[in-house]
Design a protein around this nucleic acid. Structure first.
Lengths: 133, 133
DNA sequence: CACTGTTTCATGCGTCTGCATCTAATGCAA
DNA sequence: TTGCATTAGATGCAGACGCATGAAACAGTG
């Protein structure tokens, strides 16, 4: 029961990370919903903007967004249904698909970008807003 | 398009946090599964051990574990089904329930504790293990 | 007491996720 | 060429989540 002292800073650090993560992620989800996007969806759109032109494969996006391959596959399906991205066959490797932004996808991302940055600035700098009142 | 430079460190910090979080959380989920627990379930058990004796209400646990009240209610239901916790009525306020650990719950937590600490130590100190091979 | 509003937990419902699996395309070797 | 192992993405399935709601217990007023 005394050996836990050495682990205390580790556990505290982990819990702080969990707190910041939950707080920021929820805020992102809530605010980005005003643009019709979830936090995960924006993350994927953001990666697509960065990789503009380069081939964006599903598994690369999955690794970048910390999601499973199946989750990204369905997420891309949703974005495609909403007209924000398009799936195209890779000519070199016809197993893979090339995910690319549509003009609407570009516009949606640009529209949500400032919201995203604002939430990050507010959530990651303020250490603890505390319970409201 | 030049104004984004000021946001870069913010975004990079957020992405690093996301990476550490996903990596650690997945490792916890995977390793704690060997004890029949999910990461969330261990988190709740951990809080119950800390609050030993004090009244552990559902909403307090929800706030501590960064989960919704409904999620914790069902999670407690699962732990109760597995015989790890018990629900008791609060005498002061019979709306609330008092969640308390059973001996089996104590044992399960003690069993999983070292695994939990080991994963934290490994995940939160190593900055980037990189892709295997 | 009766009445209204708030709080605490449980639950119906839809969505998102991961795991396992399937199909199709590739690569390599006989 | 044929055959087998590997890889990329799609999908069936079950589990966990949040939102909205419901039922029960409080708190306050008349």
């Amino acid at each position: 029961m005394v050996a836990e002292d050495a682990d205390l800073p580790l556990v505290q650090g982990w819990r702080e990370l969990l707190t910041v993560h939950a707080r920021t992620w929820c805020a992102l989800d809530r605010e980005l919903a005003r643009h019709g996007l979830s936090a995960s969806e924006f993350e994927i759109l953001d990666r697509l903007v960065e990789a503009e032109g380069a081939d964006a494969r599903v598994q690369d996006l999955a690794a970048a967004a910390h999601l499973s391959q199946s989750a990204v596959s369905r997420l891309i399906g949703r974005l495609e249904r909403d007209g924000l991205v398009a799936r195209a066959m890779c000519v070199q490797d016809r197993r893979g698909i090339q995910v690319c932004l549509t003009p609407a996808g570009h516009a949606r991302h640009a529209e949500a970008l400032s919201t995203h940055r604002a939430v990050l600035a507010e959530m990651m700098t303020a250490p603890d807003p505390g319970p409201p009142q």
